[in-house]
């Protein structure tokens, strides 16, 4: 190919900023790890099934290994017994990573204000988006995915996230 022909080059090359390319890639290919524990997980199943179809938002590649995922979706009640497992999973996910708390339980403990239930997963891991509902409708879960997509556009691209965060199970 004759590279001096700039006209041809125009069609084959797009100039952009590195940031924009990275964002574009991340946004369209979030790989969720679903930490589904309870009733909310059933609604997540509906979100992934054909009517609501999470793949329309590029987030259908559900990973079952945290090492392959960049979006932690906690759907369901997290008990004190489960908390160390949640933390381990979060720690195993590579940066950059985001976290969604689906439903009242994951967000605040819900109506389980008792001896077994963690009063919100943000005591253990940093949360980016909270989804209200008990359980939230599938549309609300899709909305959270879109929220994450919007959020990651605004964020610095090559810095570690949540370096300030200190959970109750850190350093124990």
């Amino acid at each position: 190919m004759d590279l001096s022909n700039t006209h041809l080059l125009d069609e084959a090359v797009v100039t952009t900023k590195l940031d924009a390319v990275v964002t574009w890639g991340r946004e369209a290919s979030l790989w969720p790890f679903v930490f589904g524990t309870a009733c909310c997980a059933i609604e997540f199943m509906a979100t992934a099934a054909s009517r609501y179809d999470i793949s329309r938002f590029g987030a259908e590649v559900l990973r079952f290994s945290p090492r392959h995922a960049d979006l932690l979706i906690v759907a369901g009640t997290v008990s004190y017994k489960q908390a160390p497992i949640l933390k381990q999973i979060w720690d195993q996910m590579p940066e950059p990573k985001w976290c969604v708390a689906v439903g009242a339980c994951a967000s605040t403990g819900g109506f389980y204000d008792n001896y077994t239930t963690l009063q919100g997963i943000d005591e253990i891991v940093p949360v980016d988006v909270y989804v209200a509902g008990c359980p939230p409708r599938p549309e609300a879960i899709l909305d959270a995915v879109m929220d994450i997509q919007r959020q990651l556009k605004r964020e610095p691209k090559f810095e570690l996230r949540n370096t300030e965060f200190k959970g109750k199970l850190d350093d124990v």
């Binding site: 004190y80 017994k81 908390a83 160390p84 204000d113 008792n114 001896y115 077994t116 239930t117 963690l118 009063q119 109750k168 199970l169 124990v172």
Partner: peptide, 8 residues
């Protein structure tokens, strides 16, 4: 009832 315990 509300006395939770963090476990590791």
């Amino acid at each position: 009832i509300t006395k939770g315990q963090y476990c590791t």
